Computed example of a mutant assay.
Amino acid sequence: MSETSWAAVDEYISGHLLKPDSALASALRHNAAQGLPPIDVSATQGKMLMLLAQMAGAKHILEIGTLGGYSTIWLARALPDDGQLVSLEIDPDHAKVARENLDRAGLSPKVQIVTGAALDSLRNMQQPAPFDFIFIDADKQNNVNYVEQAIRLACLGATIIVDNVVREGGVLDASSDDDRIIGTRKLFEHIANHPRLDATAIQTVGDKGWDGFLLARLR
Rank of each mutant, 00 (worst) to 15 (best):
L88N: 11
D40H: 08
V111T: 00
G209Q: 04
I136K: 09
L214R: 05
A129N: 02
G57L: 03
P130W: 12
V86L: 05
R219N: 13
T66A: 04
P128L: 02
G209T: 01
F133P: 00
E189L: 14
E189A: 15
S14W: 02
P130F: 10
A118S: 14
S87I: 06
D103F: 09
G46V: 06
D139T: 08
E100A: 04
S5W: 15
K110H: 10
N193K: 12
I73E: 02
T66P: 04
T72A: 04
D137S: 08
P20A: 12
Q126G: 04
L214H: 08
A58L: 13
G65N: 08
S121T: 13
A138Q: 12
D21N: 11
K59P: 02
A105S: 10
L197C: 04
H94E: 07
Q34P: 01
I191Q: 06
R196W: 06
I64L: 12
V147F: 06
K19M: 13
A8Y: 10
I134K: 03
R123Q: 14
T115K: 05
Q34A: 12
V9W: 02
M1H: 09
P195V: 01
Q203M: 12
I39M: 08
H60Y: 14
T66E: 07
E63M: 04
L52V: 00
R196I: 09
A7I: 08
G15V: 07
F213M: 10
A118H: 12
E89N: 03
T200L: 05
R167D: 11
G57M: 01
L62F: 09
Y12N: 14
H94F: 15
T44Q: 00
A78C: 02
S121C: 15
L62W: 06
T72V: 03
L218M: 09
C155F: 00
D91L: 06
D207P: 03
L28Y: 11
N31V: 06
V165D: 11
M1A: 10
I90D: 03
L107W: 00
T184K: 05
I181L: 08
P80I: 09
S121V: 12
G68V: 09
E63V: 07
W6R: 03
S2F: 08
I73T: 08
I134W: 02
A98M: 05
V86M: 13
L107C: 04
A158F: 02
S22Q: 15
L218T: 10
I73Y: 01
D91S: 12
A158V: 11
H94N: 13
L122I: 15
L197Y: 03
W6F: 11
A25W: 05
S5T: 12
V162Y: 04
V171P: 13
A33D: 15
G206N: 08
A7H: 04
A56C: 01
L197P: 11
D40A: 09
V165Q: 06
A58H: 06
